[in-house]
Design a protein around this nucleic acid. Sequence first.
DNA 1: AACTAGTGCAACCGCCTGCAT
DNA 2: CATGCAGGCGGTTGCACTAGT
Length: 249
Amino acid sequence: MYQVMTSVKAACVMMEGRLSGVRKGAGVRKGAWSQSEDELLRECVQLYGEGKWHLVPQRAGLNRCRKSCRLRWLNYLKPNIKRGDFSEDEVDLMIRLHKLLGNRWSLIAGRLPGRTSNDVKNYWNTNMRRKVQSHKENNNNNNVKESETTWKPHQVIKPVPRALTKASSMVHGKSMNSSKVGVNETVSAESENWWETLLDDKEENITFNNTTCFPVEKDGSFELWDEELDSIASEFFAEAETWSDFLLN
DNA sequence: AACTAGTGCAACCGCCTGCAT
DNA sequence: CATGCAGGCGGTTGCACTAGT
């Protein structure tokens, strides 16, 4: 429905010749995509396949930047994209995944068939953020101090998936150099252990039975995941046989 | 009917990472 | 090792639409 509305909207905009939302920039066109542009992009991707996005504008005859083409394809034109409201199951899964992964929308979307990372992100930013806010307001109205509530920010595991090349030192059994991780990132002893576990393929250690799993920092100390996360993780492992499979999927 | 505030979605922007040179 | 480029991601913005007054 919305797709139709959008198409109609784009057509109207074209006819009126005012192209609202198009910001005049140097060179490439910006703003809303027209139907003809969509067709050109769709044909191009069907012909040449996904990828090589820097070639797409030239191949398709589009005056768009590579990023714009890629985004349009991934978020709108790609087949099997599911439109419309999120089902209860999807929302439930999204909440659980967000608790597990944080704002890693692409990973979350990867577990929601037909949903794009942009969809998930938009849904979360509009619906869920509001729920969180109202929840906090309720707590305030009940004169409950924030610190005394059970509503706490998620403790998010933030692994950094990386493709390992043959040249990678980690592949050869060397520990990761923390200085390579990122400019502002520091690698704690815990995360280094985590990597060791991952790279050594010691998934048998991650059994999610409250006896062996990733520690979660809380009030300066570390405690294990709760049962809820156990169940989530178990679901994933039913599909991805190893933790690495899940993360790098 | 006119105005305003809120909402939802598409698209842009800046940054990060991997790879090739 | 430095640099440039392409792909990818998350945060943010812009704007059409809707509901309320």
